[in-house]
Write a protein that binds this DNA or RNA. Structure first.
Lengths: 94, 94
DNA sequence: TGAACATATGAATAATTGTTCATATGTTCA
DNA sequence: TGAACATATGAACAATTATTCATATGTTCA
């Protein structure tokens, strides 16, 4: 069994995945880089809600961003996300 | 992008993984079938707390149990758990 | 039968969290 | 400069949740 701290970090990571809004954001960003307002429009949610969640995702190092004028574009910062999601989907479809 | 319901289910699954007590239980059960009181002793937690969490894990179809006299043994009910954890660990160690 | 034990469960509590609302920051452009 | 726009952020609120405590259920065995 890995040490306490590692298991705690693992739980923290999955906690980030444990919200459908964040899952949707990650899935959207896996398909294309997007700005905040486009994500908000796509998911039919407020800009504020999306911005808050993007912060959580950024802190977890799952997304990165770049600024272009007044627009901030977000994209995935981890190539394992999709793989983890796939494994999860396998479990669900059983 | 998968349909709404699928993403919701995916988030629900990760929510179950998003607690270090449950992560520990799953990791322990991956190594060996165990009864409730042994898990409680191993994790240094109350029998009640473990029992509550085992129920969550059972509902998520992640563990199964068998009764032998007054003792209930729990074991993993999904072979993808370890794989998902591994992917998560890869992300953490970056 | 009754004591001892293993487990399950419901209520209560404290802590965490997702969204909203209001507003601040920063950029573009007329 | 000032209006319009994109984004970030802090406070507040409602909802969810992990643990504890008390207790119920069910089993073994003397």
């Amino acid at each position: 069994m890995p040490k306490e701290e590692t298991l705690y970090d693992l739980a923290e990571l999955f906690k980030v995945f444990g919200d459908s809004t964040r899952i949707k954001i990650l899935w959207a960003l896996d398909e294309a880089e997007m700005c905040v307002c486009d994500i908000a429009a796509l998911l039919n949610m407020t800009q504020s809600a999306i911005s808050h969640q993007l912060r959580v995702l950024k802190q977890a190092k799952l997304v990165k961003n770049r600024k272009e004028g007044k627009v901030v574009y977000y994209s995935l910062d981890d190539e394992h996300v999709k793989e983890i999601f796939k494994q999860g989907l396998i479990h669900i479809n059983e």
